[in-house]
């Protein structure tokens, strides 16, 4: 992002820890600008394009097939005369819509972060640029931490920023559409409180998810720093194979149901670490049925649940150990 790219004067001066760390983050952004930002903006743009398209199709359908029906006799008129109960329902519908719009950004984020973590420490050894980075006074610890911070902070915040732009773009388009049909969009579409709530919740999930995701991402970084070739084999296939073996052993010893613990807490944790709380494959099988699965996935309750779960904190300790191993390997590995 530009804000990140234009920082030029930093406290402490060149070579200070802060200046170095910010420079490292910018370096990651420059290298992965395509995945971290462009892909998110393109996703938002394509979705807005689809919104426009669906409006055009809707118009054509209304005019050609149904005849020139006055839109006010359909949904739009109803919106003008909503009672408090209907208004609340509409509000919830809009909220689901806003969450849903952000979902693709989160899916893109998931894959970008997954492949970023798997490749980042491997690629710099493969193209030997590690020798250049190591010729400068930036420590291995700072370098690896800057890569982790890119995965857990920079990438999610950029994805959310793209979603915010998407939300605004969407509301503007729908407002224009409504206004075109004589409906004043302001009272029901432009609800700063609702938009603020959704945005705040999205932003708040980032640090919470970070605590949860550090061990999984640290594992991916360790695999990246360890692999001689094809790092995704180490990062993803090895845990899966270990899960299968674990399952066999457990079944053979007839201690419990085969391997579920390992799959849930190790393999599941690794696979759910990239991305965000909003995009976690099993969000929807958790908890009681709800009208708004998205809002539930990122609810304050759920954030609280993540923060108090012992797995989060045990995982964090494991994560720190895995990170230390990744840093140690980058520091002392000698094969370039």
């Amino acid at each position: 992002m530009n804000a990140l790219a234009t920082v030029s004067r930093l406290p402490g001066g060149a070579g200070s820890t802060l200046s170095t760390f910010v420079a490292l983050l910018r370096r990651e952004y420059w290298e992965h600008r395509g995945g971290l930002w462009s892909a998110q903006v393109w996703t938002a743009a394509v979705l807005l394009g689809l919104v426009v398209l669906s409006m055009l199709v809707g118009e054509a359908f209304r005019m050609n097939l149904v005849g020139n029906v006055d839109v006010r006799t359909l949904g739009m008129l109803a919106l003008k005369e909503l009672g408090p109960a209907e208004m609340a329902q509409f509000r919830q519908g809009l909220e689901i819509g806003l969450w849903g719009l952000g979902l693709i950004n989160q899916m893109v984020l998931y894959f970008v972060v997954l492949f970023y973590c798997i490749n980042t420490l491997y690629e710099e050894r493969k193209d030997r640029s590690i020798l250049f980075w190591k010729s400068l006074p930036a420590t291995d610890t700072m370098t690896v931490l800057s890569k982790l911070a890119t995965a857990v902070l920079v990438a999610p915040f950029l994805a959310i920023f793209a979603t915010m732009l998407l939300h605004v773009g969407f509301l503007v388009l729908v407002s224009l559409y409504a206004a075109l049909h004589g409906v004043n969009p302001l009272p029901f579409l432009w609800q700063p409180a609702l938009l603020g709530k959704v945005w705040l919740q999205m932003l708040a999930t980032v640090p919470v998810h970070m605590l949860w995701a550090i061990p999984g991402l640290a594992w991916l970084l360790l695999a990246s720093s360890w692999s001689k070739r094809v790092p995704f084999v180490w990062a993803l296939l090895i845990p899966c194979l270990a899960g299968v073996v674990y399952g066999f052993v457990e079944t053979a010893s007839r201690l419990s149901t085969p391997g579920s613990w390992f799959w849930e807490h190790i393999v599941g944790r690794i696979f759910s670490s990239p991305g965000s709380m909003l995009f976690r494959p099993w969000n929807w099988r958790e908890g009681p049925g709800t009208d708004n699965p998205f809002a539930q996935a990122v609810s304050w309750d759920r954030m609280h649940a993540v923060l108090v779960a012992p797995e989060t904190w045990i995982g964090l300790v494991v994560g720190v150990i895995l990170l230390a191993a990744a840093i140690w390997l980058r520091r002392f590995r000698d094969d370039s």
Partner: peptide, 26 residues
């Protein structure tokens, strides 16, 4: 330290590289 030609990262722009070194090297 300069090793044989190929260790500068290929994706980086000259200006970015200079910016980076400026912030990292006292």
């Amino acid at each position: 330290f300069i090793a044989d030609t190929a260790i500068l990262p290929r994706w980086i722009r000259a200006r970015e590289l200079i910016d980076f070194v400026e912030h990292v090297h006292p």
